[in-house]
Each structure stands twice: as C-alpha cells, then as structure tokens.
Amino acid sequence: MISAIRSTVAAVYRFYRDGFASMTMGRTLWRIIIIKLVILFGVVKLFFMQDFLSQRFETDREKAGYVSGRLIAAAPAGLENQSSKREVNK
C-alpha cells in the first residue's frame, strides 16, 4: 500500500518536473505570472490596498459597530420624517 502511494507520488512529481522542464514559451508565461503575483501581493496589497476595517479594528464586534454607526450616520441630516419617529415610538 505504502509503496503504491510512494510510486504514485513519484510519478506525479516526475510528470510535473518533466512538464516544467520541457516548457519553452511557458517559461516566459510563468515568469509573467510570478512577477505579477509578487507585485500584487508583495507591493499592491501590502502597501496600497490594505483592508480598511482590519487596519482599524481588531474584532468583528468592533467592525460591526463601526459599520452600524456609518449606516445610521449616513442618512441625510434633517430628513427623518415624522412617520419614522411615530413608527419607532410605537
């Protein structure tokens, strides 16, 4: 059983190794993919596109509190109508 697994793993490894080794245009494409991923995750995400809420709050409760606050504060000032007051006070 173990030897069967070993030989399967070895075959899969050889498949990928030989595949990568035989690439011609593929090498250029892999270079592009790797450069792109490094730029996206190593530069863009790290320095320019940080998560706004995670940067400012540690817990989900804090994040929820902040977003709730924004949802309440974002309603146009002075536009709350009487029907809404009546509704809430019922």
Binding site: L29, I32, L40, V44, K45
Partner: peptide, 22 residues
C-alpha cells in the same frame, strides 16, 4: 497566464475602497 489573478485586484478594492459594503 496574462489574465490569471487580475480579478484579485477587484477583491482588494472591496476591502480598501468599499469596506462597508465588503
């Protein structure tokens, strides 16, 4: 190869620019 992961930027934007929505 050129297109792969270009959609990741959209997910970055959700967290950075559209955090309430996200």
């Amino acid at each position: 190869a050129i297109g792969v992961a270009t959609g990741i930027i959209l997910e970055f934007e959700f967290g950075t620019n559209w955090s309430n929505y996200s």
